[in-house]
């Protein structure tokens, strides 16, 4: 356990250094969410006029969803970088050392977490500039960040696992599109829960993206429902454990094919 954490720390160091060498990457990854935030918040400004829409500012409603989506999309691609390491033999070299397997995944997830926080800060900053005000205050915003990271963990781990098993970037890309797009649309990211069709609402109850969106939205709301936030975070944590377990196990499959 201690060895696992220590090794993960070393691996995180390697990935964070890489990140610092190419900060442009963070900005590039932000292009899509910024676009969504700016365009959708303008495009659907009047949506809040629909009777039954709880919040008065669509921007305030949308921001938590966009932060969650950013986490989802930015990290699902995380498997791409492990394939690069596989192709360069770096993974093989580490597998021949006593390093704990889990650290090869956990190190990446740590870097991803740091990237997400930076990106989320930028997105929230942008929303504030655009006039959004979040009643939950700083605590609420930090909780929202936590929600986004907790959603990113299982998906990034899944992406890494698929990458290791298939060894092909194309497969990861296909899987990402196959899984993520439905998860995004079958949620309440863009529309208030009481206004989406019943069947979508029914499905969204089992959608991890929605768990994160609801918890995040609750966290920045005036009167956070702590039970909902806690429950959703717990579910996501459980999913993360499963994800990391899967990814770590994927090394076995990979090693059989080497």
């Amino acid at each position: 356990m201690i060895a696992g954490i220590r090794d993960s720390w070393y691996m995180a160091g390697r990935h964070l250094r890489n990140l610092m060498r190419q900060p442009v990457y963070i900005a590039l990854m932000l292009f899509q969410p910024v676009l969504y935030l700016v365009v959708f918040s303008q495009l659907f400004k009047k949506i809040t006029l629909i009777p039954g829409f709880a919040t008065t500012s669509y921007l305030v409603f949308l921001t938590p969803g966009i932060i969650i989506l950013n986490a989802l999309f930015g990290t699902a691609w995380s498997g791409m970088s492990i394939i690069e390491d596989v192709n360069r033999g770096v993974i093989d070299r580490f597998l021949q050392t006593p390093i704990k397997r889990v650290s090869l995944i956990a190190g990446r997830l740590t870097q991803m977490g740091v990237t997400l926080i930076i990106q989320s800060l930028i997105l929230v900053g942008l929303a504030l500039l655009m006039g959004a005000r979040f009643s939950g205050g700083l605590t609420g915003i930090l909780l929202l960040f936590l929600c986004s990271i907790m959603l990113a963990l299982p998906f990034a781990a899944l992406s890494n696992g698929i990458a290791l098993m298939s060894g092909q970037q194309e497969t990861v890309a296909a899987a990402v599109n196959f899984i993520l797009l439905p998860l995004m649309f079958l949620s309440t990211v863009f529309m208030a829960p009481n206004l989406v069709p019943g069947w979508i609402r029914a499905i969204s109850r089992y959608n991890p993206v929605n768990w994160a969106v609801e918890a995040g939205r609750a966290a920045v709301s005036p009167n956070p429902n702590w039970a909902i936030i806690g429950m959703r975070l717990l579910l996501l944590a459980g999913l993360s454990v499963v994800g990391v377990f899967f990814a770590t196990h994927a090394f076995k499959t990979y090693q059989r094919s080497v």
Binding site: R17, R88, G89, R93, T97
Partner: peptide, 25 residues
């Protein structure tokens, strides 16, 4: 182990490569 193909991390320096490898051990 020295594998047939190179396994160095291209995105790091020589010293960083060696330091990380040492830490792992």
């Amino acid at each position: 182990v020295v594998d047939q193909r190179s396994t160095a991390d291209l995105t790091a320096t020589a010293r960083e490569n060696l330091t990380l490898q040492g830490r792992v051990y």
